[in-house]
């Protein structure tokens, strides 16, 4: 502590730590809902692509291209500043969650799609010839294998989306970035504010990153015939 106090204003850090905890709550809330909806949207899109449903399939492709080739910050600016002009007024939180879902949905869709494509067609045919209904075959045979293949990509997307939430400070949501920027602006305690920012993201993301690595290792047995 003595050593630390030479370099850093420990009192300052203790005083503002609760602000970071509160801001981390904002980051987590937005990330949680954004990721949840991304998974749902991604799963639906991947299903549409897998079954090649006409019209919907083309719409999904357009959505995926739009979402993957534009930055989240620009999407958020459009949602937050642009849409109110046509009467769609959403709070910053809603915009952030919608934006994150718009971005994340396509990434999750790609992850699910690569999983579904990795299961050979013959498995579906074999299952049907054994008397499974197409739905049963999907649920009991194809999906579990596809999910195991998708898991690493899904985990990578979760980490990516949590990181992307740092952008929401751009539409004035009081997340971790916003608090750090505020403290730098008001008190000029740049070192302390930035250090706490880095620590906060490490605390949030390091466990998830380690968990993802473990999960990936554990699921490696799932590759059929490898």
């Amino acid at each position: 502590m003595e050593f630390l106090a030479q370099w850093l204003d420990v009192d300052f850090m203790a005083r503002f730590a609760p602000m970071y905890v509160k801001a981390a709550g904002v980051t987590i809330t937005i990330a949680f809902w954004g990721i949840l909806f991304s998974l749902i949207v991604g799963f639906l899109c991947a299903t549409v692509q897998y079954y090649r449903i006409p019209i919907l399939k083309q719409m999904v492709s357009v959505y995926i291209e739009l979402s993957r080739n534009t930055p989240l910050l620009v999407q958020l600016f459009f949602l937050y500043f642009g849409l109110p002009k046509v009467g769609i007024v959403w709070s910053a939180e809603v915009c952030a969650i919608v934006g994150l879902t718009f971005l994340g949905g396509s990434y999750m869709a790609e992850a699910f799609r690569s999983g579904l494509e990795s299961v050979e067609k013959i498995q579906m045919e074999s299952a049907i010839s054994l008397g499974f209904s197409p739905w049963q075959a999907m649920r009991e045979i194809i999906f579990p294998q596809a999910l195991a293949v998708s898991i690493p990509a899904l985990c990578a997307n979760v980490i990516f989306l949590i990181k992307e939430t740092s952008v929401v400070s751009g539409i004035a949501l009081a997340d971790l970035m916003y608090v750090a920027k505020d403290l730098i602006g008001i008190y000029y305690q740049t070192d302390e504010a930035l250090l706490m920012l880095v620590l906060a993201y490490l605390v949030l993301l390091l466990p998830i990153s380690i968990l993802a690595t473990l999960l990936e290792r554990r699921l490696r047995y799932a590759g059929f015939g490898h």
Partner: peptide, 18 residues
């Protein structure tokens, strides 16, 4: 991989100066 790019930008832009 873990730090958001925006955090890295802040670290360099505000942190290095300091």
């Amino acid at each position: 991989r873990i730090m958001p790019q925006l955090v890295l930008l802040f670290l360099v832009y505000f942190g290095l100066t300091r």
